[in-house]
Amino acid sequence: MNANVPPTAALVAKLTARDDLSAEEIAVLQGMMSEPRIVQGGHDIVRDGDRPGHSTLLIDGFACRYTTLKDGGRQITALHVAGDFVDLHSFMLKEMDHGVGALTLCRIATVDHGRLLEITHTHPHLTRMFWLLTLIDGSMHREWLVGMGRRPALGNAAHFICEIYTRLSVVGMAADNAFVLPLTQVELGDVLGLSSVHVNRVLQELRSGELITWTGQNVVILDWDALADLAEFDPRYLHVVKEPR
């Protein structure tokens, strides 16, 4: 982790993949963030029921939104990577209706809701870009819903891999069809709505079909076209298109 890289670097990369930001807007983003701090893997960043006075930016690491059922079953409803605001929603929704947890060691920074409110008055384009981020979050939720409801488990797992690779590429954390994904099979099951037994089988199937390798935390996509075809992956929902917004 390079200390010379500003904490907002991934966020800026994520936003500028969708529209240009002015130097002043980038300075506003950099100026609004608190000092970074570390959250250990397995710990909550925000809890269900909290009323946070700030929103949290994930600088690096992997975090998830999740909901837990009475029987202990957990569904991960979103996976967050560097550059994601994990709870921009709380600025407007006020009370958290789900938790956000660190899956790995995470470096985060926060921005006070009061500061965000000011920005909505002074910087309409940045405000629209924040709005865009929550719309893309919603877009990913829709895609996950389709995947869990209607895609075969194999296709849904393939879709997840395609999505994460694409998102990590945008923030410079994946290239040449390879990336690091430090998820256990249990966590992957919570993402895909599968038992860890079925996750194991699905991964075996993807491996034996020579679509991917997954060794430790290192994922390599061996045949992007075949994987994307299996997943019916259409990246339009990620809106990685630069245009005036």
């Binding site: 099979q185 249990v186 099951g189 038992s195 860890s196 037994v197």
Partner: peptide
């Protein structure tokens, strides 16, 4: 009947799924 590796959980031995 599955073995430990198939459970996807390093802490769990095999068994009936």
């Amino acid at each position: 009947l599955i073995d430990a590796a198939e459970t996807g959980k390093p802490t769990v031995s095999g068994g009936w799924y």
